[in-house]
Design a protein around this nucleic acid. Structure first.
Lengths: 192, 192
DNA sequence: AATTTTGTACCTACCATTCGGTACAATTCC
DNA sequence: GGAATTGTACCGAATGGTAGGTACAAAATT
């Protein structure tokens, strides 16, 4: 993939993160990337095509950073969950407080509108939930968590708390809520 | 407020719930309500004006149904929380599985784009969190919950779990995730 | 008759996309 | 080696359609 195409994807990703996919026009992207229409349609068949490329780019990034880089390492389970929360809180801080979770926003905006978007985003969330499930299972086996908890259902709950927390944070335009929620997660799963 | 205006708001609410505010055109609303431009702009100054009216309508409804009708009653705290989950799961079931939480969607789509939307939606979420906080406080006083838990932070977590759970549900197009998460809430706060 | 309500025609701006064409480096042919 | 050809990257004007919004006359209501 050409450098230019990657550059367009990267910049368009930010524009769409802040405005939403449907509300972002091809002209917005042209302005942000300083390219003309010709160049845009040289690299992408359509706005939809760019949208899917952005989701793929986002998924690839996050799979690397979160799934591979944090959750699948050989660190202690408690360490991995703590690093996950740390990542969620700080990795995209400024943008995230203002505009929320790039993945979650697209999930809400596009899941019911476009099956291709939905499936790609869903793949990421499944990997996330499964990775956390493995960690919780490990913790139960090591008697760090009560065996009465269901790893899968609790993994889903943790991911939901993070995404829901970001939603509340965006609506309040204040990071405090998210920090409060992370504190509760740490208490519930004995992470300190 | 005229019957017709209320009818337009009610129908437009559904259209916007399913398509999103920005992606819904005034023409979409005219088609759904079977009115002309003249009538639309007679009742509303602008699309923005309608949007705010819809949020107000939504907030009023939910304040009545959830805050007043469930959380502020004299029922036992455990009963109230259970009824809240029941309400979240079934009250708008069909629409919600497909399109998610009308309030949460608007929170994500509009909080960073329009301060008036943000403030109105934020008011509702604050009332929700505060009501749940009161219930948790009550439960702690009645020794149904450990006093080490912080009522406010846990109330925020519960609301986040519900909203995040709905996000996952929409992205998966399957209600099972949400039910799993509600099961975890019930276990964590001893609701059965 | 006066006022409120409503449909239709219309305005301008912007939308995603297409198209004709240019610049220029790489490749092919003589 | 030099000329002709091809392919890639790119531009900006034009296209057909839709956006939100306005003007205003017809119709309904009071």
């Amino acid at each position: 993939m050409s450098t230019k195409k990657q550059e367009i994807i990267r910049i368009a990703r930010e524009v769409i993160h802040s405005k939403g996919y449907q509300a972002t026009s091809v002209s917005d992207i042209m302005a942000a990337t300083n390219i003309g229409k010709g160049q845009f349609y040289h690299y992408f068949q359509s706005k939809h095509d760019l949208g899917l490329a952005i989701v793929e780019d986002l998924v690839k990034d996050w799979e690397g950073q979160l799934i591979i880089g944090i959750l699948k390492t050989s660190d202690a389970p408690v360490t991995k969950l703590n690093r996950m929360l740390q990542w969620a809180e700080t990795s995209h801080a400024e943008m995230e407080i203002k505009y929320g979770c790039a993945m979650g926003n697209l999930a809400i905006e596009m899941s019911a509108q476009d099956e291709e978007f939905r499936v790609k985003i869903n793949e990421f969330f499944n990997h996330w939930v499964n990775s956390v499930t493995d960690i919780l299972t490990e913790m139960i086996e090591e008697h760090q968590l009560d065996e009465s908890i269901n790893p899968k259902k609790n993994a889903e709950s943790i991911v939901a708390m993070i995404e829901g927390g970001i939603l509340l944070m965006v609506n309040r335009q204040n990071i405090q809520v998210l920090q409060n929620i992370f504190e509760v997660i740490k208490q519930q799963y004995h992470l300190d």
